[in-house]
Structure formats: structure tokens, C-alpha cells
């Protein structure tokens, strides 16, 4: 029995005939904050979708979540086991109000110390003031906040975040950063895909580098922050 919360072993993912992820193995321990870095088109989002079994991706290999192999499970069953997803492009509903977004995602925790829609509205008054309007009528930053809030009220044990920094202001970004740090104290593990190196390194404790569908490098955030050569080699910075 391993100690990790999420353990990906030799994962291969295919979109039709194109072989996107090749022998990807990743280990995430409980309460860790882990980031996947890589340039565009390296397969970062595919990795997130592969974990959840989303969007017509064929997968080989094993994915263990809390020691249970979930690769053959249906997406909704995986999500119910306690994995929340903040997708790229937010994926909100135009037919549902801000309030309803949180209501359908909300899973109360026994003992009552989990996230509630009210807590989300208190921390993010900008969406708290606009409870009744359609989710997609919010501004870009507010939509990102709602997408994160929607993941929080599910009270998951693991949150997958795909490019949370995309298209939002630094002010909002700083608050999202604050939330990310707070997650650890609340017993939530974070797995992040990010192009913004600064954000990734300030959130994550461990980073993996994905190049052309392969994990080519693994390091602690501190090591990678100091390692300018790897940054240049793998990310072209």
C-alpha cells in the first residue's frame, strides 16, 4: 500500500491515433501541492482530463486514487470519490445562476467544517453580490472565481486545476494563490497545471515537467526555482 493520494503509473493517452501522453508516472502525497509545467501542446490538459476520464481520450495504464484503481471507472464515479476539477475555460453554465452553480456542486461535510456556498460568497463578495445572474454573464476573473468556488463546495480531497491564471488580473490571482495555500490546512491536496511559472512555483511544493507527453524532470519547487538551466531547457525561459 502506498501513501500517496494520487498515483499515476505508466499512463498512456491517445486522441484517436495520436499518442499524447507516453508512460507518464506521477506521485502525489496527501496535502501536497504539485504543479505540472510545460509549454503549450505538451499534454498538460490531456493529463488532467485523463485522470477524470473526460472527453474521448483512450487511456492505458493505472491511476490509483486512495489506493483504488480508477482508470476503468466512469467520470461521474471518479468525481464522486472526491476529485474536483477546475477546467480550463471555466466551463460554467449559462442557464444556471451563480448561486445554482454552487448549489448543484455543494456536498456538505459531516461535522460542518467544510466549505459552504456562504463561505465562498463571504470570501469573494464580487460573486456574492451577483448570486442571481447567469454564471456566464460574470467577468473573466469572476468566472474563474466561481469555477474555483464550485470545486471548493464539493469539499473534495483532491482538486485538479487547469491553468487558473488564464485571463485573469494579478489582483484576483493573488487571492487565488491565498486560497491555494489555505487548501492544505483544510486537508485538500492540489494538483495544478500551469504555464505561469511564477504562480506555479509560489503555489507548488513539487513540480513535474511535461515535454511532448513525457515527464522529463521532477524537482522540488525550490530546486527548480534555482535551476535556471532546466528552466531554459524545458520551458524555453
Amino acid at each position: 500500500m502506498s501513501e500517496s493520494i494520487l498515483s499515476i503509473k505508466d499512463l498512456n493517452s491517445y486522441y484517436g491515433k495520436s499518442h499524447v501522453l507516453q508512460d507518464v508516472s506521477i506521485n502525489i502525497n496527501p496535502l501536497e501541492r504539485v504543479a505540472i509545467l510545460g509549454r503549450n501542446g505538451m499534454g498538460k490538459s490531456t493529463l488532467m482530463k485523463s485522470i477524470l476520464g473526460l472527453g474521448g481520450i483512450r487511456r492505458d495504464g493505472n491511476i490509483y486514487f486512495n489506493d483504488e484503481n480508477i482508470i476503468k471507472k466512469k467520470t461521474y464515479e471518479i468525481a464522486r470519490r472526491g476529485i474536483a476539477y477546475v477546467p480550463q475555460g471555466r466551463q460554467l453554465f449559462s442557464l444556471l445562476s451563480v448561486e445554482e452553480h454552487l448549489a448543484i456542486a455543494y456536498k456538505p461535510v459531516k461535522g460542518g467544517n467544510g466549505w459552504t456556498p456562504k463561505m465562498v460568497f463571504d470570501i469573494f463578495p464580487e460573486i456574492g453580490e451577483r448570486k442571481k445572474i447567469s454564471g456566464t454573464k460574470l467577468s473573466g476573473g469572476e468566472q474563474q472565481i466561481l469555477a474555483i468556488g464550485r470545486a471548493l463546495v464539493k469539499n473534495p480531497s483532491l482538486i485538479l486545476m487547469d491553468e487558473p491564471s488564464e485571463g485573469i488580473s494579478t489582483l484576483v490571482l493573488e487571492r487565488i494563490l491565498g486560497i491555494c495555500h489555505r487548501l492544505t490546512k483544510q486537508g485538500i491536496t492540489l494538483f495544478l497545471v500551469e504555464q505561469n511559472l511564477g504562480l506555479a512555483l509560489s503555489v507548488a511544493q513539487k513540480v513535474y515537467i511535461l515535454v511532448n507527453g513525457r515527464i522529463v524532470h521532477e524537482a522540488s519547487a525550490e530546486e527548480f526555482n534555482a535551476d535556471k538551466e532546466s528552466q531554459h531547457n524545458f520551458l524555453g525561459i
Binding site: 473526460l54 467520470t75 461521474y76 464522486r80 456542486a105
Partner: peptide, 9 residues
């Protein structure tokens, strides 16, 4: 697909 992502059958 978004509902499935949230854990709904």
C-alpha cells in the same frame, strides 16, 4: 459533460 464532471450520473 460538465454535469458529469461535477459527479452527476
Amino acid at each position: 459533460s460538465r454535469m458529469i464532471m461535477l459527479g452527476y450520473n
